[in-house]
């Protein structure tokens, strides 16, 4: 049942989201935009961790690479948003493959430390290469991006653009997860040695996953430029990466829409807190994460799946694990 209803549910969700500007406030729409672009970063963490078994504390670095690439392109060359996405994606791919080559050879905690080190290295480059990046102040004066000549300056315009890119990326990731490549990744996650014994050169698949995650993160960086016209080293350091990791875990790493729920939570903790709580976002987020880890193992997505399983036990047994009868 899942295979048939999931695409329908996805399309319905995108349509509802696309209609929100007609009834929601500008603030709500801009918050949604933030959630959507952050979701792509969290989803790339989920791809690596939930599917490939590679936890990462450095994914925001590739968001930074994409953000700087798109921002610099807008300042110096063209404000075209699609070209911005393309340049960001290529930059993210190159950066993630060059660094991932090292990362995917580590396992578990070592892998986590490698991602952390590389992220800090890239953030430091952004910090020190002042002539290009403007140092710790970040890119200032990025012009509004344009789409086919029309400005994306309005909140609603940039929301629709971000939503469209979000939908495409999420659909692509969903297909990827169902594909043989996705199954290969989960095999590596569950037992890498056995995969090698089966004839899988696991390093190559892990590197491919790292590259794809790098592209998705860089796209999120380009969308950040679309939305805020700003990128700084602080957006790509390990703190930013750890927030993406938190979003992924809170939402449930094995499901893509878990990354969206987790991102909604993270962004809500940053922008929706009452006046008196301003600046206490990280504290609230920390408490929420502790509660999630203890009370809802598997994250929101895991909890929702269990509820669905209870309502439709037959469907779960027969449908969700793709058991096909010949």
């Amino acid at each position: 049942m899942n295979r048939f209803s999931a695409p329908a549910g996805f399309v319905a969700a995108i349509v509802v989201l696309a209609l929100t500007p007609f009834f929601a406030t500008t603030f709500a729409v801009s918050t949604l935009t933030q959630i959507l672009s952050f979701s792509l970063l969290a989803a790339s963490v989920s791809l690596l961790m939930g599917q490939g078994g590679m936890p990462t504390l450095g994914q925001a670095a590739y968001l930074g690479v994409g953000g700087y690439a798109a921002g610099l392109l807008a300042i110096h060359v063209t404000t075209d948003a699609l070209l911005g996405l393309l340049v960001a994606a290529v930059a993210g791919l190159v950066a993630s493959l060059l660094t991932g080559w090292l990362v995917v050879r580590g396992r578990g905690t070592y892998l986590l430390m490698l991602t952390l080190a590389i992220a800090q290295l890239l953030a430091q480059v952004a910090n020190s290469w002042v002539s290009v990046t403007n140092g710790s102040d970040g890119l200032i004066g990025v012009p509004h991006q344009t789409l086919f000549g029309a400005s994306l300056a309005s909140t609603v315009g940039s929301f629709w653009f971000v939503l469209a890119v979000f939908a495409l990326c999420m659909a692509g990731l969903a297909l990827l997860i169902q594909s043989p490549f996705g199954h290969t990744l989960r095999g590596i996650r569950d037992n890498e040695t056995r995969m090698r014994a089966l004839g899988y050169g696991t390093v190559g698949y892990k590197l491919a996953a790292f590259g794809i995650a790098g592209v998705v993160s860089a796209v999120a960086g380009s969308l950040t430029i679309t939305e805020t016209q700003y990128m700084a080293p602080s957006e790509m350091n390990y703190i930013a990466s750890s927030i993406a990791l938190i979003a992924s875990i809170a939402g449930g790493t094995t499901r893509l829409w878990g990354a969206v729920l987790g991102s909604a939570l993270v962004v809500a903790c940053q922008v929706l807190l009452p006046e008196a709580w301003q600046g206490k976002g990280p504290l609230v987020l920390g408490v929420v994460l502790i509660l999630v880890v203890y009370l809802v193992p598997g994250g929101f997505a895991g909890a929702l799946s269990r509820v669905v399983a209870r309502i439709r036990p037959r469907a779960r047994r027969e449908g969700t694990r793709h058991v096909a009868k010949a």
Binding site: Q178, S179, P180, F181, H183, T184, L198, H322
Partner: peptide
């Protein structure tokens, strides 16, 4: 997982594995 490898489709990206 073993059959996909021996059939050479283990890295295919878009079609559902099923």
């Amino acid at each position: 997982l073993a059959a996909r490898r021996s059939k050479g489709v283990q890295g295919a990206l878009w079609r559902p594995a099923s």
